[in-house]
Simulated scan of single mutants.
Amino acid sequence: MTKFRIIAVVLAATLLSACGSSKFRTYNGPEVTQVVVDKGQRRMFLMHHNRVLKQYPVQLGFAPSGHKMVEGDGRTPEGHYVIDRRNPNSKFHLSIGIDYPNQRDMALAEALGKSPGGDIFIHGGPPRGTKIDGKSDWTWGCIAITDKQMEQVYAMVKNGTPIYIAPADLRQRARVQGR
């Protein structure tokens, strides 16, 4: 009977420890006041005012240069947006939504007689065997990081946080920033 109890206790401990490996993390550090994505550097920066708290290599839409104009163009938007939603059940592990399209994006697409698209997220889950190395863009316009990195970002970045997605081309940056 003692052997049975020992085995039962070990089995229960193993099952409980498996439950503790949640994808939901907690964060108690400085507030993330802005997210900055630099499409040219293929980097995402989580900022507390002027200070970089964390930075990550990213992958972008499969057609990475230029601003997203219409649904299906494979581009990642450029400009100022806001984190507006969370998806704990994303098919890409976890994801946080970007409020694309904004009024400017909708007007641009309408002028072209097209839909601007939507559902732009920062998410995890690059395809198996893909490294986040700045060379293998694969999303339909989203910003991808690893699942483990996404767990950190999901915990750190709250809804309402501004996000600036900077163009790869420096001349375009001035236009997107309104200068």
Rank of each mutant, 00 (worst) to 15 (best):
G79A: 00
G79S: 04
H80V: 05
R85T: 06
R86T: 05
N87E: 15
N89H: 12
N89F: 07
S90F: 14
S90T: 13
S90Q: 12
S90E: 11
F92G: 05
H93T: 15
S95R: 00
I96P: 02
I96N: 03
Y100E: 07
P101N: 10
P101H: 14
P101Y: 10
Q103H: 13
Q103L: 12
R104D: 15
R104P: 03
A107T: 10
A107V: 03
L108C: 04
A109V: 03
A109E: 07
E110A: 15
E110P: 07
G113H: 07
G113R: 10
K114M: 15
S115V: 08
P116N: 08
D119V: 11
I122H: 13
G124M: 15
G125K: 01
G125D: 09
P126D: 10
P127F: 07
G129V: 04
D133Y: 08
D133A: 11
G134Y: 09
K135E: 09
S136L: 03
W138M: 13
W138I: 14
C142T: 05
A144E: 08
A144I: 02
I145Y: 02
K148C: 03
Q149M: 05
Q149W: 08
V153E: 05
V153F: 07
A155G: 01
M156Y: 03
P162I: 01
I163S: 15
I163E: 09
